[in-house]
């Protein structure tokens, strides 16, 4: 018999996750304000946007370092490492589920267990996001905080321009990830169950809830029919 509830998200992870989300929203909002600044109708003042963006960026860096250290110390990093042998096959299986199986109400191909928190697609995405894109975003962001140290000319173009375009592009890609991430979070047992898990730390086992939920819905349908 499988556990119905799993404690997968310890307090430090949840704090990091939600702070990260909050800072990201602030950075996207202020970043868009800077990129699309206007004279007559600013949503927020340019220098206020810069101030909030800088403070959020610095806090994001500290939060990332917090994640980086605790992810290793707690052993949570293991969840990010894909099984190299069957990795390609596993990834296709998961992709196939998202593209067709999910509409046929098939079960998730990789059940969430205490030894496997992420499906193979999550593993490869999160690994790239947390250990490639995130550091690049932070480094380019810090470079823009001290623009006088950026190389003046690179490939016959302004080094500052290249750094800024790079920073904006990575920020944009991570924002797109955020949208996908929030959407895929709704593919849990219920639309909100994954959000609840990330708040309480407890992952509720799927089959248990699906069955109970379906029963509930059916009871309600029967009640409705009787009333009519």
């Amino acid at each position: 018999m499988k556990n119905e509830k799993l404690y997968l998200y310890p307090v430090w992870l949840r704090i990091w996750h939600w702070l990260n989300a909050l800072l990201f929203l602030s950075l996207i909002f202020t970043g868009l304000n800077l990129q699309y600044s206007k004279v007559n109708s600013p949503v927020i003042e340019f220098h206020t946007a810069i101030l909030i963006h800088n403070i959020s960026g610095i806090t994001l860096t500290l939060n990332y370092l917090f994640f980086f250290v605790l992810n290793i110390v707690s052993g949570n990093y293991k969840y990010y490492l894909p099984k190299l042998k069957s990795f390609g096959k596993d990834m296709l299986l998961q992709l196939k589920f998202y593209l067709s199986g999910i509409f046929k109400n098939q079960e998730h191909p990789f059940e969430t267990t205490s030894s496997r928190k992420f499906n193979p697609l999550q593993q490869i995405t999160y690994l790239n996001i947390m250990y490639a894109l995130f550091p690049l975003l932070l480094i380019s962001g810090w470079a823009l905080l001290f623009p006088e140290f950026i190389i003046n000319r690179l490939f016959q173009t302004s080094g500052l321009l290249l750094t800024a375009v790079f920073h904006t592009s990575i920020g944009f890609l991570l924002s797109i990830f955020m949208i996908g991430h929030i959407y895929l979070a709704t593919t849990g047992t219920t639309v909100l169950s994954n959000f609840k898990s990330m708040l309480t730390g407890w992952h509720v086992h799927e089959n248990h809830l699906v069955k109970s939920q379906l029963t509930e819905i059916k009871i309600q349908q029967v009640q409705n029919e009787n009333e009519n």
Binding site: Q35, Q156, S158, L160, L161, A164, V165
Partner: peptide
């Protein structure tokens, strides 16, 4: 684009 960078003003059309 070729000469300097100005936040907000320098928006590459294609990007």
């Amino acid at each position: 684009l070729n000469n300097s960078y100005v936040i907000g003003a320098t928006r590459n059309y294609y990007l």
